[in-house]
Design a protein around this nucleic acid. Structure first.
Lengths: 156, 156
DNA sequence: GGTTGATCTAGAGCCGGGTCTAGAACCTAA
DNA sequence: TTAGGTTCTAGACCCGGCTCTAGATCAACC
């Protein structure tokens, strides 16, 4: 119970959230804060630990692709207080679905990428062998077709 | 062996790649094509099935976050022909790493999102119960702290 | 009192990745 | 032959999400 309320400067908040001071002011303009940012003497912004916690959540949601308007809407709901949990739930579920499909897409892409990495690993290995053993021409045509994932994938 | 070489209009290619005709012309300007796009009488673009295959790969790589300059570089390497497989490998491995860490980040974010969804599900359920049974006050303060992922997560 | 360094505001600029427009040319089909 | 749809080029525009600038103010230290 030593610290009543931590008060932090914009620079300190930038440090501990990983956001730039510019981004912090920008987020404020965009209405991403739940509580209006307090001002100290001289008109400087004063942040609390709660602000940092909230921003930490924001950073995670942003990193997972939540657009600023959604984040701003979420902040609105939280600011309003209890009673709108259904809407918060809907918002979060929407984002959850979004992230889940995004992970799915990336994982699919990774199949292709791994396939290509495998192909080039083989080619490089063969190339090395040819260099050292002084024969073995490059493997047929440069462009051949190989089945992958149901459709045909060109091996470039 | 019926079709010698498929020739497709820009509209047809747009249809089967999911890219817009605008995007196709834009990609061409950006140097994303391996072979210069042929022109038919009247100066119209003529694409082959190979172009479509290549574009399909491009679409997947783009969807997984490969930036246009990297894609353009990759196209350069393929255009150059055999002999630069090490560099293609490096490029693909770089992108693989990128996608892998991206999936990791999203998965982590999903933990937070799922947590929040759970919290709101509970709150909504309690709210419903309160509505139907006509008592049970809202669960303590709106802002309480709950441990999640090592750091403290605010439940808004 | 002077010199840093952090902060302030308002607004401009930038980057990635397209998207759209205008005005002309071309290609069927009726 | 005329109308509709497609395509052409060059270049402007847009959107999201910051980032940076200018010019002023403030706080702290020597």
């Amino acid at each position: 119970m030593a610290e009543i309320t931590t008060s932090l400067s914009i620079g300190q908040v930038a440090e501990r959230t990983g956001l730039s001071v510019h981004a912090l002011r920008f987020y404020e303009r965009e209405g991403l804060f739940v509580n209006p940012v307090r001002r100290g003497p001289g008109g400087r912004r004063v942040y609390s630990q709660d602000d940092v916690d909230w921003l930490t959540v924001c950073v995670i949601l942003r990193a997972s692709g939540m657009p600023l308007p959604a984040l701003s809407r979420y902040a609105d709901l939280v600011r309003e207080g209890a009673g709108n949990e259904e809407e918060r739930l809907a918002l979060m579920r929407g984002h959850q679905a979004h992230v889940t499909t995004q992970i799915g897409r990336l994982t699919e892409s990774l199949d292709l990428i791994r396939f290509k990495v495998g192909v080039y690993e083989d080619l490089v290995e063969q190339g090395d062998a040819a260099t050292h053993q002084c024969h073995a021409p490059s493997p047929s045509a440069d462009e051949e077709r190989t089945p992958l994932l149901g459709h045909e994938a060109v091996v470039e």
